[in-house]
Amino acid sequence: MSPICTAIAASLSTLMLHPAPTSITASLQQAETERADLGGGLYMLTGNGGNILFSTGDDGTFVVDSQFANVAEQNLELIKEVSDGPIVFVLNTHFHGDHTGGNKAFYSEGATIIAHENVRSRLANTPEARAIDTDTFPVITFSENTTFYWNSDEFRVMHAADAHTDGDAFLYLPKSNVIHTGDLMFAGRYPYVDLGSGGSVGGAISALEAIHDLADKDTRIVPGHGPLSSRDDVAATITMLQATRALVRAEMMKGLSRDEVIAADPLAEYNGTWSWRFIDGDRMTGTQFDDLMATDAEAKAAVDAGPAKEAKAVPASATKVTASSDAMINDDDPQTATTRLEAAQDETEQAVNKARSRAAEVIEDLTKIESDSEDADDPQQ
């Protein structure tokens, strides 16, 4: 693995909560690189790492993402086969090594590296930053949006806040009607949301909604990974993320822990379609759980409280208790309320028994008085 990939992998290493980036770098280097002609001087490279989009023309070549270092020379050759012009710009959609690993090779060809300011910050502040060649860093950064007027089109670059990471950007070419999403979209797959690097599921959904709003039925969508896609594919990903989020939240509201929610397999109906070798149903469930714990106070409170305890059954005779005892039923602790209710019932029964005993004594006295009175009235006495 190249030094940049090693450093990026170390910076993302939150193995217990999120998939290790070294897993994705291994998973995404197993295919042959292919070049697809999108027309109008636009091409797409797929196969190893994040999908590359590049534009050729009179202004030179504009490249989006650089894949891995070990395939950079191959990618340069594929670009040079269709363009005699210089490679002027390389835009990184985020900082992960499968999108920035080839930066050094492209820089050596004269390219200027561009990215969101958080991409440079992430690359410069990894635990092994000293092992990374600073030539791989973006030399032009932006905080929100920027536009390049290039090869007779507009290259509108837009920042997506706290989505896949905290430094994501996607690119829209209105004349060509093409969008490169970066890793905001994994076509037909569960996405990798890097929570440890500022990403969030809510931010990812918002970014996809913005992409969906920009697109029309004819827009060609270049995803971060996977085949060329459409507006409908973006919509399907949004629907999946919203639905799986709701399913995981429903389990959390039962007070289940992270392991218990994963064991419940709430995404079973989606796994057959969306799971892949890097993000399966368990990992997607874990991502949704972790994100909700950080962003949804109600769901977090339910998990922290744990499963609801069953209250002790209240005796049928409890309906005979006094009004003051009825109020005890509303006690916050069901067990305490039941205990107090039973004590009140015992007191009530004792009072009833005492009243019955006193009534028997009164009846006995009245009977004796009545008997004495009859004797007094008897003429034979």
Rank of each mutant, 00 (worst) to 15 (best):
G182I: 01
G196V: 13
Y192G: 06
D162K: 14
A210Q: 13
A204C: 15
P191Y: 09
I211R: 01
L171M: 13
A161G: 02
R156H: 01
V222L: 06
A163H: 01
S197E: 10
I179K: 05
S176R: 15
L173Y: 02
L208S: 02
T219S: 13
G182Q: 10
G188I: 08
D183M: 12
H180R: 12
P191Q: 10
T181Y: 00
D166H: 10
A187E: 11
V201H: 00
H164W: 06
I179H: 04
N177Y: 09
L195C: 12
T181D: 07
D166Q: 12
F186K: 12
P174C: 08
I211L: 12
H164N: 14
Y172E: 03
E209N: 10
D183N: 14
V157P: 06
D183Q: 12
A160N: 05
A207P: 03
T181Q: 04
I179F: 04
S200M: 06
H159M: 04
G224H: 01
G196Y: 14
A163G: 02
G202W: 02
L184S: 11
P223C: 02
A210L: 12
Y190T: 00
H180E: 08
A204Q: 15
V201T: 00
T181L: 09
I205C: 06
V178M: 09
G224T: 00
A163C: 04
S200N: 07
R156V: 00
L171I: 13
A163L: 03
V201C: 02
P223F: 01
R220L: 12
D162V: 05
G182A: 07
G196H: 13
F186Q: 11
G167L: 06
D168E: 14
G224C: 03
L173M: 15
P191I: 12
A204W: 03
D168L: 12
N177F: 09
D216T: 09
K175P: 08
F186C: 13
Y190G: 03
